[in-house]
């Protein structure tokens, strides 16, 4: 499984309240949520993001609430992968459970700049920076996580394996 796209870059502690503010939580429709994704730290994100694009952020991405609406909004916005130095644990679970690929890779976060174009191989965890012609090694996904992402989330995976 692979992903390819342009980078949107953010700092540490990007919390679920800025990923999707509570004022928009009166719906659970991913497409509707995607319209307001990242609004409070990056007003232009929702209009500028293209299918396949990649979010790169520093430490503790997704801290705060357990709202699954946060990874759902990111996924529905078209983002193919989030790379961060570390993830908050509930966000980490939620992302895997809904089938949004995420990778921890401090080196990549340090070297990647906003607007760079990346290619990611989830099988090996390799991140290739096409703009800078560099490769960074992230953690490969454990097999059961790859299976969940391939099935497009835990529920489909449970269904397929019932």
């Amino acid at each position: 499984m692979k992903a390819q796209g342009k980078v949107f870059k953010y700092g540490s502690n990007v919390d679920t309240d800025v990923i999707i503010p509570a004022r928009y939580l009166n719906t659970a429709d991913p497409k509707e949520l995607a319209k307001y994704c990242m609004e409070d730290i990056d007003k232009d994100f929702a209009t500028e993001v293209n299918k396949g694009d990649i979010i790169v952020a520093d430490k503790n991405f997704g801290c705060g609430s357990s709202r699954e609406h946060a990874p759902l909004a990111i996924k529905a916005a078209g983002v193919s992968c989030v790379i961060a130095t570390t993830f908050a644990r509930i966000f980490y679970r939620n992302a895997i459970n809904i089938g949004l690929p995420i990778l921890e890779c401090p080196e990549a976060v340090e070297k990647i700049k906003a607007g760079d174009v990346l290619e990611i191989d989830f099988g090996t965890g390799a991140i290739y920076n096409r703009t800078r012609q560099e490769t960074y090694q992230g953690q490969a996904f454990p097999e059961f996580m790859q299976n969940i992402i391939a099935a497009d989330g835990l529920i489909n995976y449970l269904k397929n394996n019932a």
């Binding site: 357990s66 939620n94 835990l154 449970l158």
Partner: peptide
């Protein structure tokens, strides 16, 4: 511990 909606469903 806190989890998300999919974990709640499962």
């Amino acid at each position: 511990t806190g989890i998300g909606s999919t974990d709640m469903a499962a």
